[in-house]
Design a protein around this nucleic acid. Structure first.
Length: 232
DNA sequence: AGTAAGATCCAC
DNA sequence: TGGATCTTACTT
């Protein structure tokens, strides 16, 4: 795969704080080959997550906020690997690990546009079109949301957790490669993270980054039971 | 050992 | 708006 204006990510590209790395991933591409099917997604929405000891303040919305555990171990490892976790018992969500080894951090891939392998992605997402469903789902929904993106590119918890997206080395029969823009985007929107409880999901942590106006960006919804925090 | 909540999605 | 579905982490 060769894309104009893009280059393969180097591990050093991902050494910084997640909140600094996240916007540089926008417009980049994650390419996977899983069970023989290649799919590429152009990233349009991401979120930064730190950890205990990462940056000036602890990120209360991070899986790594309490320190290293078996679950979040990948977040503490070498940058450029993918931290894949199970959300709500159903969805495999994907992060690009960043920060130096020994420091927790990652960027959640929240949404993107499938630019290669749409048929394979649609098969994974929806299978054969269900009888009685007359209209095909729009391409924009293939990877519009972190659970949908993970399913579209075929990465699964726990099998693919830890796969290296810098080298692209095979990992349990799958491969993943990360491409970055030669020139990072400059027109980027930021705001509070989606589905994150408490102060971590407010403007106190404007760590969601997206490409303004892109139709594949997920719709913003306040977390369940939460609402906008109105300051006096 | 029991339980509550979770970086979500979909249909009603 | 609520149910699915299961892992993790915290409580007893």
């Amino acid at each position: 795969m060769r894309q104009a204006g893009l280059r393969r990510a180097k591990r050093s590209d991902l050494l910084g704080l997640p909140v600094e790395v996240a916007p540089r991933l926008l417009g980049g591409i994650v390419h996977t080959v899983v069970e023989g099917a290649g799919v590429s997604v152009r990233l349009t929405e991401v979120e930064a997550y730190h950890g205990q000891g990462t940056g000036d303040i602890v990120d209360p919305g991070s899986h790594a906020r309490m320190g290293r555990t078996a679950r979040n171990a990948t977040m503490w490892g070498e940058p450029g690997h993918l931290y894949v976790y199970l959300s709500h018992g159903i969805h495999s969500c994907v992060n690009v690990v960043c920060g130096p080894e020994g420091v927790a951090g990652g960027v959640l891939l929240r949404a993107g546009e499938i630019v290669e392998g749409k048929d394979a992605a649609a098969q994974r997402r929806w299978g054969a079109l269900a009888p009685g469903r007359s209209t095909a789902r729009p391409d924009r929904d293939l990877a519009r949301g972190p659970g949908r993106l993970g399913e579209a590119i075929g990465l699964r918890y726990p099998l693919d957790n830890g796969i290296d997206a810098v080298t692209g080395d095979p990992w349990h029969g799958a491969e993943a490669r990360l491409w970055l823009r030669d020139e990072p985007l400059t027109d980027i929107a930021t705001g509070p993270r989606v589905g994150v409880a408490g102060a971590a999901g407010t403007d106190a942590f404007p760590w969601r980054f997206w490409i303004p106006g892109d139709p594949t960006v997920s719709p913003f919804r306040w977390g369940r039971g939460a609402g906008p925090i109105v300051l006096n």
